[in-house]
Amino acid sequence: MQLVHEPVSGGDATDKGGDRRVLATDVDLADSLLSQTRGLMFRRSLLDGSALTFRFDSAAVRDVHMLFVFFPIDAVWVVDGVVERVERLRPWLSFARAECDLLVELPAGTADGVEDGDRVVLES
Rank of each mutant, 00 (worst) to 15 (best):
117 G>R: 06
15 D>F: 09
12 D>G: 13
71 F>R: 07
114 V>K: 06
30 A>H: 06
86 V>C: 07
44 R>C: 11
11 G>Q: 06
41 M>T: 13
75 A>S: 01
66 M>A: 01
99 E>Q: 10
26 D>V: 13
31 D>G: 13
21 R>Q: 09
25 T>G: 15
47 L>P: 15
70 F>H: 15
97 R>V: 01
95 F>L: 07
96 A>V: 03
78 V>Y: 07
34 L>W: 06
92 W>S: 09
100 C>T: 03
68 F>C: 10
28 D>A: 12
7 P>V: 07
109 G>D: 08
53 T>A: 14
70 F>I: 10
28 D>M: 13
105 E>L: 09
109 G>T: 04
8 V>D: 12
37 T>G: 03
109 G>S: 06
123 E>K: 14
86 V>S: 05
100 C>G: 01
123 E>D: 12
92 W>M: 14
16 K>L: 15
97 R>N: 05
84 E>L: 09
1 M>T: 10
29 L>D: 09
107 P>C: 09
3 L>T: 11
21 R>S: 09
61 V>C: 03
98 A>Y: 02
58 S>K: 04
5 H>W: 11
15 D>E: 13
8 V>K: 08
58 S>L: 00
29 L>Q: 12
107 P>I: 08
107 P>N: 08
35 S>V: 08
89 L>W: 00
14 T>E: 13
102 L>Q: 02
108 A>V: 10
95 F>G: 01
58 S>V: 00
18 G>L: 15
120 V>S: 05
103 L>P: 01
67 L>P: 00
13 A>C: 11
86 V>Q: 04
56 F>K: 02
109 G>P: 06
66 M>Y: 01
25 T>S: 15
5 H>P: 13
22 V>K: 05
63 D>V: 02
81 G>H: 13
3 L>K: 11
75 A>I: 00
71 F>A: 07
9 S>L: 15
60 A>K: 06
20 R>L: 10
121 V>F: 06
111 A>I: 08
72 P>N: 10
111 A>N: 06
95 F>N: 01
81 G>I: 15
87 E>H: 03
50 S>H: 12
107 P>A: 05
96 A>G: 03
124 S>C: 02
104 V>P: 05
61 V>R: 12
47 L>N: 14
73 I>N: 02
110 T>K: 04
47 L>M: 12
110 T>H: 05
35 S>I: 07
106 L>M: 06
81 G>E: 13
41 M>S: 13
21 R>V: 07
60 A>I: 00
35 S>A: 13
83 V>H: 08
40 L>F: 03
56 F>S: 06
114 V>E: 10
13 A>I: 08
51 A>L: 07
2 Q>W: 09
58 S>H: 04
94 S>N: 02
28 D>T: 15
64 V>W: 00
29 L>S: 11
1 M>L: 09
18 G>N: 14
1 M>R: 12
75 A>D: 00
62 R>I: 04
97 R>L: 01
112 D>P: 01
40 L>E: 04
73 I>V: 10
122 L>F: 05
53 T>I: 15
46 L>V: 10
65 H>E: 02
78 V>F: 09
66 M>R: 02
20 R>M: 11
47 L>F: 08
81 G>V: 15
85 R>P: 02
6 E>I: 15
46 L>C: 10
28 D>Q: 14
65 H>S: 03
71 F>S: 11
104 V>W: 01
121 V>M: 13
81 G>A: 14
112 D>F: 02
83 V>C: 10
30 A>P: 07
